[in-house]
Design a protein around this nucleic acid. Structure first.
Length: 614
DNA sequence: TCTTATGCCCTTTTT
DNA sequence: GGGCATAAGA
């Protein structure tokens, strides 16, 4: 069945009730599969469902597509041609590997300045794979100006695919892609899993891409019991290949599906809902649905013009302080924005006022340099052909940069008989004099690490054996980073296998650091979040900042961007608020005078109240 | 001349 | 944090 539901109508709740209903009617929890998009949403839904059926969370099968995919693939790695299993590349690793391939292709071509940057190549390749479109189509849809370089770009991606295979690495897209291949081409395996999952439940169906829709179809091919919920007006992940046509085509794919529409909003005051309805009305490509409010009347949303980002931060922080002084709870407040960097000033101001906050955007815990550095030690031990981690480690040594790291890597992999770890001792030959001593010390440390199998111990040893010194020489805030690493080591204690530890770190990398997560659960705090990450959540009071043309909607020249998707994003932001909503924009920025966002200008006056700040 | 180190700019969204 | 230009080093 398909549940088409607007914002705040209880989509996720519907899924958890469905789980409870199924269990009540005799379906065993382990035969139900819950698929979600984010780790956070998955945790929350599993927790709720488990408490409804009075069972332990572990009795349910659920998680993100990538998490479930990885679990299934791990048992069939050989079938897919990965000899000793595989390591997972996270976002930053993927980009690094692309950078390596880009340099290789660039040095072989004279006109290589035509090659786009690694981040663009990564984006492009991922888009092509997630939409199952040929590279040329992907280029013309996303970066039309690059079409003349299609050949060069394809050289890089070919090399990238080849390297991944050789090095036993998979990226996020491979997890989905390999899962489709596994289930499509191996009838026995498909039958096993699709028989096992008698009911498949999917949250946020509007954000599935081609691969994910196919995974769902394959997983429920035996029983054909699928429950999907979604809202086309909240489709905000097209850059990742999400295609809300999937939800429109649901009926075609599952002709016997029943469709339910939920249009009663239980979350927001009528005032907030009217504003949201008006904001999305300008979109042409949508199922028209006007949400009805059932809550009592509230305040009009406030429109707040401010001089600059500094004043904006002062306003938001002081409003939050007032709310707390009046006995309000910090947990009920969120500040939402289009891009990470917009949160900086707010963070500084909140820190100044001593208001605890939790930032849910930007650099993730596991993407920070020191975490990746220390994990690189573990990674070369678990996969000695992990070129990226080798180079990362080597470049930390004084006197070794890109060029020397490349030379040493070549030396390490020169001999097919001797594995890289064995050859490290003799690698000094490939290094300049200045670096030899450091390289020898590093080799000794790695040699010591090889005897250890527990990830926690390995982290401690790498830290003491060599990384700690580097940490204090490199980072002004080494103390904080060292604390992170100690925590990482403590966290790793519950893993006995480095392999499992690493793959879980890569997939759940988007999750909070353990320390912050613990703090977040214990203490009250304001949430600062990108709108993308705020999806599915709600707060009593919401501030949306940086509502200026150019920032929101964000305009990136040269790319084929979609104003309707930006407007859906605005809609998602507005509908996060239950009681109070503040829309902030500034007159100026470092770039000069700014205009208020066209999204605000599109909303008829009278739906909000303009506040004067003196 | 090839490499490494460093200072200064800017910053879309994510599994 | 990342990319890029430029200074310093070998």
């Amino acid at each position: 069945m398909l549940v088409l539901a607007g914002a705040g109508t209880g989509k996720t709740r519907t899924l958890t009730y469905r789980v409870a209903w199924l269990v009540e009617n005799g379906v065993h929890p382990s035969n139900i599969l819950l698929l979600t998009f984010t780790n956070k949403a998955s945790k929350e839904m599993m927790r709720r469902a488990a408490s409804l059926i009075g069972a332990d969370v572990t009795s349910l099968w659920g998680g993100t597509f990538h998490h479930i995919g990885n679990l299934i693939l791990k048992s069939h790695a050989r079938l897919l041609g990965y000899k000793d299993g595989f390591s997972i590349l996270d976002r930053t690793d993927t980009k690094d590997l692309f950078e390596t391939c880009r340099t290789a292709v660039a040095s072989a071509h004279k006109d290589s300045q035509l090659l786009p940057k690694a981040s663009v190549l990564t984006d492009l390749h991922s888009y092509a794979r997630n939409t199952s479109k040929p590279a040329e189509t992907a280029i013309s849809e996303r970066f039309a100006a690059l079409l003349p370089n299609a050949q060069l770009i394809s050289d890089v991606t070919t090399l990238y695919e080849k390297k991944k295979r050789e090095l036993n690495l998979v990226d996020f897209d491979d997890i989905l892609h390999n899962l489709v291949v596994l289930l499509r081409d191996h009838e026995d395996i498909r039958e096993y899993y699709s028989r096992r999952f008698r009911h498949v439940l999917v949250d946020e169906y509007q954000d599935t891409n081609m691969l994910q829709a196919e995974v769902v179809a394959l997983l429920c091919s035996y029983h054909r019991n699928i429950t999907a919920v979604g809202d086309d007006a909240q489709s905000i992940f097209s850059f990742r290949g999400a295609n809300f046509e999937n939800i429109l085509n649901f009926q075609k794919q599952y002709p016997d599906a029943r469709i339910f529409k939920l249009t009663t909003n239980y979350r927001s005051t009528p005032q907030i809902l009217h504003t949201a309805n008006a904001a999305i009305a300008a979109n042409r490509r949508q199922f028209h649905k006007e949400l009805r409010a059932v809550r009592a009347e509230g305040e009009l949303p406030a429109l707040v013009p401010l001089e600059d980002v500094r004043e904006q931060a002062l306003f938001v922080a002081s409003k939050i302080k007032d709310a707390v002084d009046d006995g309000g709870a910090l947990d009920d407040i969120a500040v939402l924005y289009r891009s990470h960097y917009q949160s900086m000033e707010i963070q500084m101001e909140l820190t100044r006022l001593g208001i605890p906050y939790d930032v849910r955007s930007g650099m993730k815990f596991f993407e920070q340099a020191h975490i990746k550095d220390i994990l690189a030690y573990l990674r070369i031990l678990s996969n000695p052909y992990d070129e990226i981690s080798w180079k990362r480690l080597l470049k930390m040594l004084p006197g070794i940069g890109n060029a020397t790291a490349e030379k040493i890597w070549n030396y390490l992999t020169q001999s097919p008989q001797t594995p890289p770890l064995e050859r490290l001792i003799g690698a000094a030959a490939a290094a300049p004099k200045k670096a030899r001593e450091h390289l020898a010390a590093f080799a000794a440390c790695i040699e010591g690490l090889r005897k250890i199998s527990a990830p926690s111990e390995a982290i401690d040893k790498a830290l003491r054996g060599s990384y700690e010194k580097y940490l204090f020489l490199t980072f002004p805030d080494a103390d904080n980073r060292l604390r992170d690493l100690t925590q990482l080591s403590e966290y790793a204690v519950k893993y006995t296998s480095t392999d499992t530890f690493l793959s879980e770190m890569a997939i759940q990398g988007a999750e909070q650091p353990m320390a912050a997560a613990a703090a977040a659960e214990s203490g009250e705090h304001v949430v600062l979040s990108s709108i993308h990450q705020a999806k599915g959540l709600e707060w009593k009071t919401v501030f949306i900042i940086g509502l200026n043309d150019g920032q929101f909607p964000s305009i990136k020249s040269g790319k084929n961007w979609d104003e309707e998707e930006e407007r859906r994003l605005f809609y998602v932001a507005l509908t996060r608020a239950c009681d109070e909503l503040y829309l902030c924009y500034t007159y100026t920025s470092y770039a000069g005078l700014m205009r208020p966002s066209r999204f605000i200008r599109d909303i008829p006056g009278g739906l909000f109240e303009e506040i004067e700040i003196i």
